[in-house]
């Protein structure tokens, strides 16, 4: 983050990556990235971070928990375990 306007652009990076930034903002960021290796690294690794967590397997509801829930709320006998 060596350039003076790196911090200024930082606030718009998520919108830029999500494709939600205005055209003028995108153009400004891309001009800056062409000249700033540090910010290119931040953008690359931010994209990679997003990719990684979006592909992370999500925890499943344990079957025993689901069974206890259904038993409790349909007033059947809940298992003790």
């Amino acid at each position: 983050m060596a350039h003076t306007n790196c911090e200024h652009l930082l606030a718009d990076l998520s919108d830029y990556i999500d494709g939600e930034a205005a055209d003028a903002v995108c153009a400004e960021i891309e001009r800056h990235l062409a000249d700033c290796a540090d910010c290119r690294a931040v953008v690359d690794t931010l994209r990679k971070t997003i990719y990684l967590y979006r592909n992370l397997p999500q925890p499943a509801l344990p079957e025993a928990t689901r069974t206890r829930l259904l038993a409790a709320f349909t007033f059947d006998t809940a298992p003790d375990t």
């Binding site: 983050m1 911090e7 930082l10 606030a11 690294a41 931040v42 690359d44 690794t45 994209r47 990679k48």
Partner: peptide
Amino acid sequence: EEEGLTTPLQLFDWC
């Protein structure tokens, strides 16, 4: 919430 926006310190491109 803008205050304290995390300033990147790790600048190595590990991609």
